[in-house]
Simulated scan of single mutants.
Amino acid sequence: MSTTTWDIEIQDLWGGYNDTKVLKGINGELPAGKISIILGGSGCGKSTLLRHILGLNRPMQGSIQIGGYDFFALDTKQFRKIRRRMGVLFQDGALLGSLTLGQNVGLPLSEHTKLPQATIRKIVLHKLGLVGLADYIDYYPNELSGGMRKRAGLARAIVMDPQILLCDEPTSGLDPINAAEMDQLLLSMKEHFPSMSIIVVSHDLESLHKIADNVLVINQGQAAYCGNLEGLQSSKDPYLRQLLRRQPNSIKQPSIDLGADIKAELANWLEK
C-alpha cells in the first residue's frame, strides 16, 4: 500500500459467528491522525467489530476499506503486510510472565524482522521511554503494577510504528490516576505518530470526553452514531442521550413471596 495515511471505512458490514449475526449493516469512518472511540453497551458488537478490523473475522457481507483498499479482497501477501502494521493493546496487557519487559515489548520485532538484538533493545528502550518505563526494561511482569503492565502493553503495540493502533478497554481495571495517565499517553501517541489511526474500544465516558476526536456508537449491532464528539454530545437521539447520561433501563422486579415457612427455615439455618 502506497498511501501514507490509512483511513478505515466500514461499508455495510455484517458479521458474527457461525449463523449468529452480531454486526448488522454497520457504516462508518475511522479517520487517520485521530482518536476514534467505539462506544456502546455490553454485547452490542464492539469487540466483534474490532476483530473484523484486525482481520481475525471475515465479513459475512460488506467490506472494510483501509487506505482505500478493500482489506479482505487483498492477496495474502498484502493482507499480511497490513496486519503487521497494526498494533494492539489488549485489555489485560497480555504480557508473557516468563519474559522480561524488554523481551515482551521486543517480541514483534524478534518474530517479524531479522534485526540484531542490540538494535531491537535500542528500539524497545525508545518505546518504553515513551510510556515512562525505560528504567524497567529488565523487570518481569509480576514485578510491576497493573498500570505499568498496561503501559508496557502499549509500548509493545507501538514497537513496530504501526499505522493503526487498536486499544481494547485501555482504562479498564485502572484506578482514576492510572486511567488518566493512560488517556494522556494515548494523546501523546497521537502527537508522536500524527498519521496513525488510533481506535479505542471503551465504556469509559471520562476517557471519551478527554481523548475522542471521532466516535462510533454501536447499538444492537448497528451504528447509532458516527461523527465528531461535539455532534454526539448535542444529539437528541434518545439512546445516545441515555448512554451519555448513564441512565439505567428499568429492571422488572416481580414480587415473589417466599412464604413464612421458607423464611423461618432460612432464619433457622442462619442461627446455627
Rank of each mutant, 00 (worst) to 15 (best):
H192S: 11
E265Q: 13
P194I: 13
S207Y: 04
K34Y: 12
V88C: 01
I123E: 09
G132T: 06
L174A: 09
G173E: 02
K190D: 06
P194G: 05
C44L: 01
V201T: 09
K24R: 15
K21H: 13
M148S: 07
P162R: 00
E29L: 15
Q103A: 15
S195E: 07
I177L: 14
A118T: 15
L240H: 02
Q220C: 10
H209R: 14
I199Q: 01
W14V: 03
D70I: 11
D257H: 07
E271V: 06
Q242K: 15
L109C: 06
L115Q: 14
S207C: 06
A152M: 06
S36F: 08
Q184L: 11
S42V: 15
L133K: 08
P108Y: 03
K210F: 04
F79P: 11
Y225K: 00
K272C: 04
I198V: 13
G97P: 04
R84M: 11
D70E: 13
D168P: 15
N214A: 01
L154S: 01
G146C: 07
L243V: 01
G33K: 07
G102Y: 12
L270R: 11
C167P: 12
A157Q: 03
L23S: 09
K150D: 02
Q233V: 05
A264W: 07
R80W: 05
L165R: 04
A155V: 02
D138F: 08
E9Y: 00
Q65D: 05
Y139E: 10
A155N: 00
I64P: 05
G43F: 09
H192R: 11
G45E: 08
H126L: 13
G40A: 06
T48I: 12
D168L: 12
A73F: 06
G16H: 05
R149G: 04
K210A: 12
G259F: 07
D261E: 15
P162G: 02
L174D: 04
F71P: 00
I8A: 06
I8R: 00
P170S: 02
L125M: 14
N219D: 08
F71S: 01
F72T: 08
S42P: 10
S250G: 08
G93W: 01
T4L: 10
L125N: 12
A73W: 05
Q61E: 14
T3S: 12
A179H: 04
P59A: 10
S255E: 14
V88G: 03
I211A: 03
G106M: 10
G173V: 03
A118S: 12
E191R: 13
G259C: 11
G173H: 09
G93D: 03
